Computed example of a mutant assay.
Amino acid sequence: MPKVGMEPIRRQALISAAIEAIHARGSFEVTMSEIARQAGVSTALAHHYFGSKDQLIVATMRHLLDELNGEIVAALRTARTPRERITGIIRANFGSDQFRPATISAWLTFYVKAQSMGGARRVLSIYARRLRSNLRHALSQLTDKESAKRIAEGTAAMIDGLYLRHALLDSDPDREAAIRLTEDYIDAQLAAGTS
């Protein structure tokens, strides 16, 4: 008979194992058996909790998105100015839990999988809309509406591009360099709009 309260612990272990297994394999071609073994549970139990590998992958994406959203909300709560809000959003996107090799590999795999899996596409669509909306809201307090939209799109593309670049490098990602580069882009765009 299973212990009461073990399900959330095992579900989290499987989600963490999925991230690590995808990173180790370098692709989505990891099996549910490999993920279960990494989590220290049986394959049958993994199927019991998630049904299929695709459902586990979508749950993993949602988990990462929930973590990211929590970091963004915390950053926005402490920001006093629109520019601090933007910095908070950027720092959260390059947070130490998000911008680490295994999580970067997982996000890259999710982007690829979203092309053929509706659940993954929906999760990534939520992420993209939320990122652009948060950026546009803060930027609209610093510049006109059209410029805010354009800068938000460019910033979102830069964040995604930096994830892609670091997924393809053999070195550890430099989160502070990624933050500086993104901040520099925003500062240059805002300065160009005021000159």
Rank of each mutant, 00 (worst) to 15 (best):
T43D: 10
A46Y: 00
H48W: 13
Y49V: 10
F50I: 01
G51N: 10
D54R: 13
I57Y: 01
I57E: 01
V58K: 03
A59Q: 04
A59Y: 04
T60A: 14
R62C: 11
L64S: 08
L64A: 05
D66Y: 05
E67N: 11
N69D: 12
N69Q: 13
G70S: 10
I72Q: 07
V73M: 02
A75M: 06
R77M: 10
A79L: 06
T81D: 00
E84S: 12
R91V: 14
R91F: 03
A92D: 01
A92G: 09
F94A: 14
F94P: 08
G95P: 04
D97C: 09
R100H: 10
A102V: 01
A102K: 06
T103E: 14
T103Q: 13
T103N: 14
I104E: 02
S105A: 14
S105I: 00
W107Q: 07
W107K: 12
T109D: 12
V112W: 05
V112Q: 08
M117C: 12
M117H: 14
M117V: 15
G118C: 11
R121E: 03
R122F: 03
L124H: 07
S125R: 11
S125E: 15
S125F: 04
S125G: 14
I126E: 09
A128W: 00
R129N: 00
L131C: 03
L131M: 11
S133P: 02
N134W: 04
L135F: 03
L135E: 01
R136P: 04
A138N: 02
L139R: 09
